[in-house]
Amino acid sequence: MSKYIVTQNVADCIGCRACEVHCKDKNNSGPGAFYCRMIEVTSSAGSLPRIDFVYLACFHCEKAWCVDACPTGAMRRRDKDGIVYVEAKSCVGCKACITACPWTVPQWNPETGKVGKCDLCMDRIDEGLEPACVSKCTTGCLSFTTPGQASESARQAFAEQLLRNRR
């Protein structure tokens, strides 16, 4: 796990897929390749329909299968913050990383014949900015944070809700 995490408030997500588009526009991921994806899950079982969307990008694993599988060292992990990324010039397009990843996160770019994946827009992070998907999320349901901060703010919100609902 990189020191960062992108969290999603599902209640505020409307499945508008702006995150996917902002990512593609910024990262030029190639036709059919999505570094992040909004997965729709619906159910009509209860009295109210459930129509939810779940944000899935890359988990930036601490011990990343894709990095271990890569024969050329193109798939690598940034020392300073643990971001897992592809060094394009070393990628030979063998797809070992795609096979190795339990969630098939690395994406195939048919135009370049190489793999690409979410690097949390590390060029933006290095400028003190947020990843494209988070920065421009239509409803603000995505947050770029750290696991510690995410836990802290979730607990804070829960505590406030507890007090609001106190009779």
């Binding site: 508008c16 897929r17 702006a18 996917e20 588009v21 902002h22 526009d25 910024k26 920065s135 421009k136 999320c137 239509t138 409803t139 603000g140």
Partner: peptide, 21 residues
Amino acid sequence: WIEGNSHDGGMGRSLCAKGGA
């Protein structure tokens, strides 16, 4: 780069998928 005009408080940097394209 294109984003919502955050000088407008109701907008922030938010931009929908169409704007992003």
